[in-house]
Design a binder for these strands. Sequence first.
DNA 1: TTGTACGCGTTATCAG
DNA 2: CTGATAACGCGTACAA
Lengths: 345, 345
Amino acid sequence: MAGMTIKDIAKKCGVGVSTVSRAMNNHPDINQETKDMILRVIAESNYIPNNSARNLKRSDARAIAVLVKGLGNTFFGELVSGLERECEKKGYSCILQHVEEQDNELDVALYVAKEKKPRGMIFLGGNFSHPREKIQQLGIPCVLSTICTYGDQEQSFGTVSVDDFLESRKMTEYLLGLGHEKIALLTAPREDESIGKLRLMGYQKALEEHGIPFREELVAYMDATEDRYSFATGYRMAKKLLEKRDFTALYATSDTLAIGACRALKEAGLDIPGDCSVAGFDGMDMGAYYIPSLTTIRQPVGKIASASADLLFNMIKGKEKPKKQIFEGELLIRESTAKRNCNPI
Amino acid sequence: MAGMTIKDIAKKCGVGVSTVSRAMNNHPDINQETKDMILRVIAESNYIPNNSARNLKRSDARAIAVLVKGLGNTFFGELVSGLERECEKKGYSCILQHVEEQDNELDVALYVAKEKKPRGMIFLGGNFSHPREKIQQLGIPCVLSTICTYGDQEQSFGTVSVDDFLESRKMTEYLLGLGHEKIALLTAPREDESIGKLRLMGYQKALEEHGIPFREELVAYMDATEDRYSFATGYRMAKKLLEKRDFTALYATSDTLAIGACRALKEAGLDIPGDCSVAGFDGMDMGAYYIPSLTTIRQPVGKIASASADLLFNMIKGKEKPKKQIFEGELLIRESTAKRNCNPI
DNA sequence: TTGTACGCGTTATCAG
DNA sequence: CTGATAACGCGTACAA
């Protein structure tokens, strides 16, 4: 039978609809035998409760929603798995929602909130510079995971991430320590106001501290319109920088960009790290398997996932206020970087 | 105001709820001026219609659902984008639903169908060997994209893919043509009944046609439990095969596996393709940027996406019956394969 | 412990 | 063209 409802089940069992409802939702005040009987009948009838009707009635859904902006960012896969695991532990379900690159994540969030009534939300990716008012309209606790916001104002949402500024400075310092002074940078579009900007600032800061002037011509900014953080983008940007060939190291603000860049260097006949060192950021799996394996900053994805979930659940329970939580990234030194070669390229 | 409903809007506009509904849903029988007025008020009030209530009432949703099994399979990203584009063209919306690796995609499909009432479904990934009866319970047209089913029985669902058997044979023949006779294979778990099995059979067929006996010890099967098609899996399998070192080429049934394998070969001190050729399957972006770039079979993702959408829409309109549609894959010869070296490894 | 009846926010029907 | 009203399927007070 196709469109079975709770009534059909009730009839089949010779009980009232509320009893069936109680059986399905693990309510305490129901006779164990009737419950078993009802559940058996349900299983046999392959009845599927209508979620829309449920959500309509329910004011509350023992679930959190995870909004992911930018599919294809392999980096998020692991984070999502971690989040799902944490939810399961708490007996929550986890609603995964994909946000298109050009869509506004907060608008999507508003829709999801209204439809699914989750108790909290986690945002992955995106810039997240939204008017405070609109965030409050959401009405449920939010945590930005992996997105380190710029500025220190009191936030209406929690934040769990590495300190993109510090980590980026760390990477730049490492490269400087290898003797590189002309370090090319592959980074987000100029307009970027979050992660991209912070990583750029970290790079600048490190240079400054070493008394090396920042040179705009060593920086390639992505086009705002192009596919962010793709191999192709890294490849294209590196090609462009190679026209001048005035660097001995290249630091890409994501591993995908770095890999795209490696390919461009290789095609230009350069050896990595012999002629040019390359470093990435994120610590994606792929970097470990690339040849040469990629020096990068590994974000502690597991920790970030579980801390995000913990923070969110605490905010839901009212046990904790929104806060900014920082984890340290790990500098993974691998094959793609080496001391500066004496003969410049 | 937080929980606004259509009634609030109606009141604000001094009209009935049905008029508001008509304005929102582009119904023809409404005065243009009232419509404009209502839409303006809605925009000013940041009112968000309740999707649950909509879906509850609606019998039909001018949408299709896309079920993706196996996040992280970067290969699907492009497919999904293509599908979304096609939907937009037709004025359909596209519901993206992620299916966990261990979940049954058909059960998820049943839930989604009931909740969202889409007019059709597309499945990406998974094995899809389901009882016919359960598929029919879905009650809407389905297309398996990229999943080539085994066997020729009449299907209750459409299928758009490459011929995994033929393409796999093609790749194997290419390697044989380079003079390789000992070709290691990295493939799906033994129990696999769909893509994995077909690709294995293609490999066997090619060997047979060249009069080369199939040697079980050259084949590494994934564990059923391990992360399918990950780098780590490819790496592990290749390591294991390397204990014998009895091959001059390695053919992995996915690009990710191939890349994992490359890393293992590299660590064993082998040059690719000098000491051992490596080939993949799928034609993911990454293969083009890998060093060495990866010889592979490129699945025509764009074509598959648009053909899947076309077929599904035609099935929805009743203009076409479920059919099996095959596209040819493209053998991309890149840096990772070469003629067999005379000194065996 | 169980059943009845109402309401959640929409859309569709039907009468104006 | 518009407005009242009956569903949609479920959860849950409330009464039994």
